[in-house]
Amino acid sequence: MVTLEPCNHHGRTPPCRQALLDAGIARVLIALIDPTSREEGGAARLAAAGVDVEIGLLADSARTVLRPWLHSLDTGRPYVTWLYEVDAEGRALTASETMRTLYRTTTDVVLDEAGHLSEGVSAGHGKDAFAIPAMTVDEPAQLLAALHEGGTRSLLLATSPRTAQRFLEAGLIDATTFHVPHPARPTTNTGEAALVYDAFVIDRVERHGDHLRCDTTVLLPRIGDQT
């Protein structure tokens, strides 16, 4: 069972479909066809070689796992997650270094409160190392476009709420992860001091010690959307 169709080309590594054939695999379950497949695609080559290929199993779950990568293909920019903390009064605060370290490995690049970019994880299979552009957070759209061009597919935004607001206003934040003390006083507003902004849809809440972790999806008009 694989989330994405085995590749059919030789890049930084040999084709994945050839590795499966060499291993004598008789049946392959593929959740999603690779939208970047070259030539006829790995699934077709496997089937032509006599492998039993099934496509579409757990496709929705695979889309969730691959959401940042698929999103970057569709939009031409990284999938942006705003990381922040909330105080006892419900005000959004800049994520601490401890929190940034905790989530660093879930993303390609981290943008911190000082405007510094750092690599989240090492470049993976089929991906070149990204190039850090000489831009500031005052140009969020250009910054994201340049990072995408350099190979970045996901960005963890760990800036101040004021800086994150620039991304929000431009429709350039896709999700958030924040920590709030437990118990907390939930508040909802559109200002800088907010626990949950009006455009956020809460996907998951989990308790971790003396705080809650909340994950949300941001429903904002995207640049280029038709109205």
Rank of each mutant, 00 (worst) to 15 (best):
T101H: 07
Y79T: 03
D60L: 10
A170N: 10
P181Q: 02
A59F: 14
H211S: 01
L220F: 00
G42K: 09
D174N: 14
I223G: 13
G150C: 08
A158W: 04
T136W: 06
A62E: 15
D74Q: 15
E206T: 03
T75S: 11
V110C: 10
L21S: 05
E192Y: 01
D112R: 04
A49S: 13
T106P: 03
I33F: 02
V80H: 09
L83H: 00
T13V: 11
P181K: 11
R162L: 12
T187E: 12
V121M: 08
L212D: 10
C7K: 04
Q142T: 04
A175L: 12
E89P: 00
R17S: 03
N189C: 15
S154Y: 03
L93E: 11
L143F: 10
M1I: 05
L102Y: 11
A194K: 15
T217L: 06
E119N: 14
G150D: 15
V218F: 05
A175S: 13
V65E: 09
R204S: 15
T3N: 05
D210R: 03
L83Y: 07
L20M: 10
Y103K: 06
D34L: 06
T107N: 09
W69P: 13
G41A: 06
C16T: 10
L144W: 04
T13N: 00
E40A: 07
P183W: 01
F167S: 11
V196M: 09
N8I: 02
E139K: 07
L20Y: 12
V180C: 05
K127T: 12
D34M: 04
R204E: 15
A92S: 15
L172C: 09
D112Y: 09
P35F: 08
V28T: 05
L83D: 01
A184D: 04
V205R: 06
A129K: 01
T64G: 00
G126W: 07
G11H: 00
I25P: 00
E5Y: 03
T64F: 12
R77V: 09
I223A: 14
P183T: 00
T190M: 07
Q142L: 08
T159H: 01
E192R: 12
T187R: 10
E139A: 12
V180M: 00
A92H: 02
R166Y: 09
T163Y: 03
A123I: 04
P133Q: 15
D138R: 11
A123R: 14
P181M: 09
A158Q: 03
T176E: 01
A193S: 12
L144P: 11
A164M: 10
G41I: 00
P133M: 13
R213N: 05
D108G: 07
T107Q: 11
R17L: 08
Q18S: 08
L4D: 07
